[in-house]
Write a protein that binds this DNA or RNA. Structure first.
Lengths: 156, 156
DNA sequence: CGAGATTAGATTGTGCACAACTTAATTGTG
DNA sequence: CACAATTAAGTTGTGCACAATCTAATCTCG
């Protein structure tokens, strides 16, 4: 026993674990707050983008959310089944599918307006802390992305 | 258009989005690094706990990772199929199932030893930044947890 | 123009997260 | 002791994330 592996491997020092835990804890709070609206958290993110931009092809939606069609296609299908969005083939480019909120989808925006406030309250963070944390996380994401796709040539 | 909803709803100000994105970006890097080991990221976390503690009932494992049996049971079944762990009913309490790494599972620890280093390199963060970020995230998680299960009584 | 490359979206398959439920063992209390 | 309550795992069903693959439309260039 007692392999010569130092603290580096200790779970409680793994930032990824904290990140993962925080992300799931957020998910739990969102689940509660979004239940009334009939939305899951990823669906809510999609609606946020649509509320802001009005209408977008699936591709653009995916760029905003860093999600691919494998995730978005079924998710959008569920939102369409819930009558919150409509999807239609672009006439200019038959490959593209444009997604836009229905009237019900747009109306939902007002009911969702208090969600961010309640989330902010749940975090116990003030605005400055939130901004700061967000900046760090975005920097982290950028660094990881640079490493991620098509890399990892074993530096050793 | 232009519902009277302020910046609060703007996607790019939502910390949860940054958190989610960072978490998935981490997932991508881990996926690359763990591919050789034949582990997914959640499986790696389980192995970390087992490497540290040697043998644990599923319940304890879940407490360390904040995961329930609905997630752990099939995950452990896959780790067992990969011959990295064994599960056996406790004799003292037949309800409990104790999980422990096999010899192959223990051996894997050495091959995994460089993973944290490579992750650290990928983040571009120094140790102090990592510690700091982790502390903030853990505080955030604690706050969210306090809110989460059996709460949400609409403070307004 | 026309064949190959590229692009958008959908589909398939694997694995995780979690709620809700089931089963079986244990504990607590009268 | 008996029986209700609790507890540990497992199971089922839904939804998300992502790789790999497929189809159809568009683009590019000879």
């Amino acid at each position: 026993m007692t392999t010569p592996v130092p603290d580096r491997l200790r779970l409680d020092q793994q930032i990824c674990f904290s990140l993962n835990a925080a992300s799931r804890a957020f998910g739990g709070v969102y689940r509660v707050l979004l239940k009334d609206l009939g939305l899951t958290y990823p669906q809510y993110l999609v609606m946020l983008v649509l509320w802001e931009h009005g209408e977008l092809p699936v591709k653009k939606l995916g760029e905003h959310l860093r999600l691919d069609s494998g995730t978005l296609s079924p998710l959008l299908k569920r939102l369409e089944a819930a009558a919150l969005v409509v999807r239609e083939r672009s006439e200019r480019d038959e490959r593209s599918v444009r997604v836009r909120p229905t009237e019900a989808g747009t109306a939902l925006r007002e009911r969702a307006a208090e969600v961010p406030l309640r989330i902010a309250a749940a975090t116990g963070f003030d605005l400055a802390e939130v901004q700061d944390l967000r900046a760090r996380l975005d920097r982290l994401t950028a660094a990881l992305d640079a490493f991620g796709p098509a890399s990892a040539p074993a530096p050793s």
